[in-house]
Amino acid sequence: MKRRDLLRSFGAAMTTSALVSPAAAAELKGFPEQTAMSADHLPRPAMKGGGFQVFTQENDRKILAAVFDRLIPSDKFGPSASEAGCLEFLDDQLAGRYGEGRALYLEGPVRPENEEAIMGSPQFTQTPRQRYEDGLKALEAYAKATDGVAFHALSPGRIDEILSGLEEGKIELPNGVKGKWFFELMLQNAREGYLADPLYGGNRDMAGWKMIGFPGARYDYRPYIERQGENLKLEPVSLIPKD
């Protein structure tokens, strides 16, 4: 069933639910004997070595680094987004399920007229990977048209100006790329790369976690519950620690 059909049929299902056999649910008896993790429950670490898979063009990486490092610049609190591995993180994500939009509904709207109003947020028929392909091209074209140089060659101040314009919806990018939505995608992914577990390629040396004081993948905080109002100085821990 397509998602929107599902949404529309929801009301009907509620009223007729008495007719739906509850026996359709699988019944579990006892408990699982094995406690080893099955493959589909394991995290999928990003692996270096093969180089970039999606951002294979150096210029694309330069544009992205230029944007990311304005969103999270290097300062006394920590490294910049690109220094912390956010490009590698994003490349790995875009090369896999996230990039393919596996969890997204990507077919056209049933009723295009007011779909944004129905859904409460912008909807896309492109995968995230395609959105980056088009978005980076559009940024480059925009810089060439307005400033006559490559995007990555713009001054930090000028990049801030463009990013602000995109964020506020004041700048439209060429080729139908919605500037505001592409900005939001990049912002979200930069944050994710900076704060996700290092096993996914970003947050190198747990720099993001150290910056905000997040203690990482710990199981139990009972030893600390009583110690309120105190800087606990907890060392962050990755889900798959290096040592």
Partner: peptide, 9 residues
Amino acid sequence: KASKKMATP
């Protein structure tokens, strides 16, 4: 035949 530690970046 337990698995190896997962390789990480």
